[in-house]
């Protein structure tokens, strides 16, 4: 086989600005939107359906939206709306809760879809040991029922509930602290 110099045929110049590529938008934002849906309370299987709906509903309006961050915010709004629509019975409290969740998300997850926050959490979880680690592994890692986990660590269900509350608050403080440290570097 002989070798010949390679030259790719020139493409005709484009006269119109490129339209947003829907596939690229899904690829770029799907993880962030899914995490957001999970973080505001959608169970995993519901979150997947809502994720698809979010993109389908949003596609027609995305060309007016603009920057990457604005697209992400628009998708979150759409996702929140779809989630809330399925929970009308939850009323004003749910709306209020979602507003709080949105503010928290914008503060520490919106920029990177939650990557940095998860990394910090991962470090914090590694610091847990003994019963605390056993409880989060069983309850969140293996998704075992609360009664099962309570039996596993020798607690009443109410005791486990309190322990989980304390663990979540502790992890939250640890994550905030780590993100604060990261910001100062």
């Amino acid at each position: 086989m002989t070798t010949t110099p390679l030259q790719r045929p020139a493409r005709p110049p484009s006269m119109t600005p490129p339209a947003p590529d829907p596939e690229a938008i899904v690829r770029r934002h799907q993880t962030g939107v899914w995490r957001y849906l999970r973080a505001i309370g959608a169970p995993a299987d519901v979150a997947e359906d809502l994720l698809q709906e979010t993109f389908l509903v949003a596609f027609d309006k995305l060309h007016d939206v603009g920057s990457d961050a604005a697209v992400a915010a628009f998708l979150r709004r759409t996702a929140r709306h779809l989630w809330l629509r399925g929970r009308r019975d939850a009323g004003r409290r749910e709306q209020l809760l979602l507003e709080h969740a949105e503010r928290a998300w914008v503060a520490d997850c919106a920029a990177d879809g939650g990557d940095r926050w998860l990394d910090a959490l991962r470090d914090c979880v590694q610091r847990l040991d003994g019963r605390s680690r056993q409880v989060v592994d069983a309850f969140y890692g293996e998704r075992r029922a609360r009664a099962d986990v309570a039996r596993l660590v020798g607690l009443e269900e109410n005791g486990l509930k309190t322990l989980l509350q304390r663990l979540r608050a502790g992890l939250r403080r640890c994550v905030d602290q780590r993100l604060g440290e990261g910001g100062e570097r």
Binding site: R35, L97, A101, L121, V136, E142
Partner: peptide, 15 residues
Amino acid sequence: VVERRMDWALGEVLG
């Protein structure tokens, strides 16, 4: 809010 977020995040970190 913290409970819901942890439900997602720990599911991803540990599960």
